[in-house]
């Protein structure tokens, strides 16, 4: 199971990012656990400067925008 963290201050974009990842994971039949991280120290830990950011299995994949569908598909496959 992939551990997905969506980092952000709880704005609508972070919400949408988390939903997008859950939806695509369900479509592809990949098991994921998506959590939302809003704590400032977590941003520092991953060196994230723009949100929403996506961390999958402790690796920073993306930051600064809602990812595109094809990007998410590539991360999950």
């Amino acid at each position: 199971m992939k551990q997905v963290k969506v980092l952000g201050s709880g704005c609508t974009k972070c919400q949408k990012t988390a939903e997008l990842i859950e939806r695509i994971a369900a479509e592809q039949g990949v098991e994921v656990s998506v959590s939302k991280e809003t704590d400032a120290q977590t941003f520092l830990q991953y060196g994230v400067m723009s949100t929403p950011a996506v961390v999958i299995d402790e690796e920073l994949k993306h930051s600064g925008s809602i990812p595109h569908t094809d990007q998410v598909k590539a991360w999950l496959s």
Binding site: G8, S9, L44
Partner: peptide, 14 residues
Amino acid sequence: CSCSSIPVFLGFTS
């Protein structure tokens, strides 16, 4: 976006 001000602040600071 203003919702990024905290990570930007920390990124600059660190």
